[in-house]
């Protein structure tokens, strides 16, 4: 589904990603773990197309197409979704209105008719139940005055309503207590299916107790230094990222 090869990217002329190789097949859940500043969020933002992130080498193929040549909205319409680490507050834009605009933009792209108000509400209500979100939140401005946990649940709600093919979760677990974490994980697990792929970015192993990945990658200094099964996350929890010291042997070893 997604093939990332030799991806280099910079922000403000500072190289953050230094050659990422990653292949995620349909139905798979991959986790990317790494210390702060290793480039995890940069990877998420490059995939989503955030302005200011410059790809200097490499490519990203999504279902055989060059993802990097698409505008952010085109990527979304093609089924790419990013759950933000810091969801943006948008005063004055009602959550429901925003969701409807998004759903219909994507449907229009697919040549489908706009959802009528009733069908749309049914769909949103069902998904809101999935993330245990009070319907009152739907009528409030997007993320405005939401707690950290509510914002993250709102991200998962959007994902559930938009039904992406490839979803990237950027530190969705950060700032969540254990109950909120379970709600978010349940939401993601409910959406797992053989046609959909996930890239779960996290600093801590904790989230992966609830969203069990097929593959775990360790990102250090802009490179994937080790990949393995779910047990790798547990091992990392034991020994920390220290073993992959910057410019250390581990980094060189896995870069080969």
């Amino acid at each position: 589904m997604i093939e990332i090869s030799n991806l280099h990217a910079s922000v403000d002329d500072r190289e953050i990603l230094r050659g990422i190789d990653l292949r995620i097949g349909a139905g798979e859940v991959h986790a990317v773990m790494g210390p702060n500043g290793s480039g995890k969020s940069t990877l998420a933002n490059v995939i989503a197309g955030r302005p200011g992130y410059t790809v200097t080498a490499g490519q990203v193929l999504y279902r055989g197409r060059d993802l990097l040549e698409l505008e952010p909205e085109e990527r979304a319409r093609e089924g790419v979704f990013l759950a933000f680490q810091y969801p943006v507050e948008i005063p004055g834009v009602n959550n429901l209105y925003f969701l409807k605009a998004a759903v219909n933009a994507i449907r229009k792209h697919r040549g489908e008719a706009e959802l009528d108000a009733l069908d749309f509400m049914e769909r949103v209500q069902a998904r809101a139940g999935l993330v245990k979100m009070d319907e009152a939140f739907l009528k409030r401005p997007v993320n405005e005055g939401f707690s950290g946990g509510e914002k993250k649940r709102n991200e998962i709600l959007q994902m559930a309503v938009l039904e992406p093919t490839f979803a990237v979760l950027d530190e969705t677990d950060s700032g969540l207590d254990i109950d909120a974490l379970k709600v978010v994980a349940d939401g993601v697990n409910a959406l797992r299916n053989p046609e959909r792929a996930f890239l779960v970015i996290t600093h801590y192993q904790r989230l992966l107790d609830y969203i069990v990945p097929d593959v775990v990658h360790v990102l250090v200094d802009g490179r994937i230094v080790e990949s393995g099964g779910p047990e790798l996350a547990l091992a990392l929890e034991e020994r920390g990222y220290g073993a992959f010291g910057r410019h250390g042997g581990a980094s060189r070893r896995a870069g080969a």
Partner: peptide
């Protein structure tokens, strides 16, 4: 807010529409 523009775009809303939506939100009150 360019972060808000990007946020809307990642949900499939075109850039011009995203900007209009945000201005509309500002003036709508």
């Amino acid at each position: 807010d360019e972060d808000a523009v990007f946020y809307l775009r990642t949900r499939g809303i075109g850039e011009a529409d995203a900007r209009r939506l945000l201005v509309r939100a500002f003036a709508g009150e």
